[in-house]
Amino acid sequence: MSLRADAPARATHVHRFSRAERWVHRTSAALMGVCVLTAAFLYVPELAQLVGRRALVVSVHQWAGVALPVPVLLGLVSRALRADLRLLNRFGPHDRLWLRAALRRDKRHSARPAGKFNAGQKIYAAWIAGATLVMLGTGLIMWFTHLTPLVWRTSATFVHDWLALTMGIVLAGHIGMALADPEARRGMRTGEVSREWADREHSLWRT
Rank of each mutant, 00 (worst) to 15 (best):
G139A: 05
E46L: 11
I128M: 14
L85Q: 10
I141T: 13
F117C: 10
L147F: 05
T138F: 04
L68P: 04
A125H: 14
R54T: 14
V77C: 05
M135K: 02
V66S: 04
R100C: 06
H146F: 10
R54S: 09
S110D: 13
H61N: 11
T138Q: 02
A180P: 04
S78W: 01
H109S: 12
V151E: 14
L136I: 11
G115S: 12
T132N: 06
V44W: 10
D95V: 07
V72Y: 13
A156W: 03
G137R: 02
L136M: 06
T157K: 15
R105V: 02
I128E: 08
G52K: 11
K116C: 12
T166H: 01
S110C: 02
M135F: 04
F91E: 07
D106R: 00
H146E: 13
H174C: 02
A64H: 05
A55P: 00
V60F: 13
V70P: 07
Q62T: 12
K122N: 07
V44M: 08
V58N: 11
V77E: 01
G130Y: 01
H109W: 11
V60G: 06
W162C: 02
A172N: 01
R86G: 13
A119Q: 01
A55I: 10
A172H: 00
A102K: 05
L76T: 03
M142R: 15
L103W: 13
L150D: 12
V170T: 12
Y43F: 12
V66L: 15
D161E: 10
R185N: 07
K107V: 09
A111R: 11
V151P: 01
D84L: 06
A67K: 01
R112Q: 15
L171M: 12
L163E: 04
D84Y: 03
A126L: 15
M167N: 08
A80P: 06
T138I: 04
R79F: 07
A67I: 02
R53C: 00
R185I: 08
L97Y: 03
G168V: 05
V170E: 06
R108E: 12
L47V: 09
G115F: 08
Q121R: 03
S59K: 13
K116V: 11
L171N: 00
G137N: 03
R108L: 09
L88W: 03
S155P: 06
R100F: 08
V57Q: 02
A178P: 05
L68R: 01
L133T: 06
L179G: 05
A114C: 09
F158D: 14
A125P: 02
P45A: 06
L87P: 00
A111C: 08
P93M: 08
T148H: 06
R104I: 00
I123R: 00
F158C: 09
N118D: 14
